[in-house]
Design a protein around this nucleic acid. Structure first.
Lengths: 178, 178
DNA sequence: GTCTATATCAGGATAGAC
DNA sequence: GTCTATCCTGATATAGAC
C-alpha cells in the first residue's frame, strides 16, 4: 500500500472513531507512519482529505443502491433498503460511522448530502414502493420508514451481532408490509 | 439574568448548534458578553461547563419520565414514550439537540448516560410493557421500538411541524400495538 | 514523493488586579 | 464577581531540501 492510500485509510479510521474535528493531522501522520507535511502535499487541506474519503466511500456504496433501484417488487425494495445499512456496515463499518457522525454533527453536510442527491433516487423509490403497496398515506409511511431506517443505522454502529440484526430487519419489515 | 446563567444559556445554544468541540470558550464569552476568564471562575473547565448544562437539562426532563414510569397501561406507556422526544424538544430544543449530538459523537458519553441509568428505568418500563402486551418476543420488540424512537428523536431536530410530528407518533404507535 | 523545520494562530486555562 | 493580560500547547499549514 502506498503512502497516500495509507493516509486515507488511517484518516478514515480515526475520523470514524474520534470524529473529524477531534482528529489532528499530526496523529494521522503518526499512525500512517508518514510525515505530517505529506498529508498537505496530497490533499489541499484537512477538509480535502475528508472529501476524498467521502468520495471513495460513496462510490463503494453505489452498487448496493443501484441494486435496489433496479428492483420492481415493492416488498423486495423495502427489504433491500432495510438490509442496506447492514450490508454497508459489514463492508465499510468505518465509513458508515463517519457518515452518520457527519450527518448528525454538521447541518451543512446533511444538506449537501441531500442536495447532492446521492440518496435522492432511493428516496423516490421508497415513496413509490409504498404507493404501489396501496398505503393510504404512502408519503407518511415512507417518512416513518426512513425514521426507522435511520435509527437502525445508528443501532448497527454499536451492535455487531449479525443474527440479531437480521431478526430486527425481519421485525421491522413486518411493520411496513401489508 | 446573571452572568453565570447567561454563560450556561449561551453555551447550550452554541454546543447544540455547533457541537461541543467546535465551540470555543472565547466565542461563548463574546456572545454572553462576559470575559473569557469568568467562564473558568464559574466552571472548572470547559467540560465542567458542559456537565452543568447536562445536569440542568436532565433535571428538567425528569418529570416527563416520571410520568411515564407512573403509568400502568402498556399502550399508554408506549404512547407517552413516543411523545417524549416531542415534548422535550418543544420545551428544550437546544438541550435535546445537544444530547443527540453527544450521544452520537462520543461513545464514552453514550455509555455514561446508560450506566448513569438515567434512562434505564424507562428502558425496563418499556420492556415490561411489551411483555404485558403479550408480544412473542417482547425484548426484540422493545429493541425495535427504541430504534424507532431514536430515529424519531433525530427526525424532530430538523422538522418542527407539530401536526406532522403527531401524525408520525400515531403511525408509529400503530406499528407497536396489538 | 517525501521529510524536516518552522510559521502562525487559536484554543483552553491561569494570575493578578479591582 | 468580574476583567485584562498573558501563558502554553497543540493544530493547521507552508517552505525548502532531498
Amino acid at each position: 500500500m502506498n503512502k497516500k492510500e495509507n493516509i486515507l485509510k488511517v484518516a478514515l479510521e480515526l475520523f470514524a472513531s474520534q470524529g473529524f474535528d477531534n482528529t489532528s493531522t499530526s496523529l494521522i501522520a503518526k499512525k500512517a507512519e508518514v510525515s505530517e507535511g505529506l498529508i498537505f502535499r496530497h490533499f489541499a487541506n484537512k477538509e480535502g482529505l475528508l472529501n476524498e474519503i467521502l468520495e471513495e466511500g460513496l462510490i463503494k456504496i453505489k452498487p448496493f443502491i443501484d441494486l435496489i433501484l433496479a428492483e420492481k417488487h415493492p416488498e423486495k425494495i423495502i427489504y433491500l433498503t432495510l438490509e442496506l445499512p447492514y450490508k454497508i456496515i459489514s463492508e465499510q463499518k468505518e465509513f458508515w460511522k463517519l457518515l452518520m457522525n457527519l450527518r448528525q454533527q454538521n447541518e451543512k453536510f446533511r444538506k449537501d448530502l441531500n442536495d447532492n442527491s446521492f440518496f435522492e433516487p432511493l428516496n423516490n423509490k421508497i415513496n413509490n414502493a409504498f404507493k404501489d403497496l396501496k398505503f393510504s398515506k404512502p408519503k407518511m409511511e415512507a417518512e416513518t420508514f426512513f425514521i426507522t431506517l435511520t435509527g437502525f443505522g445508528l443501532y448497527l454502529i454499536d451492535n455487531g451481532d449479525k443474527e440479531n440484526a437480521y431478526k430486527l430487519i425481519k421485525n421491522i419489515q413486518l411493520k411496513f408490509s401489508k
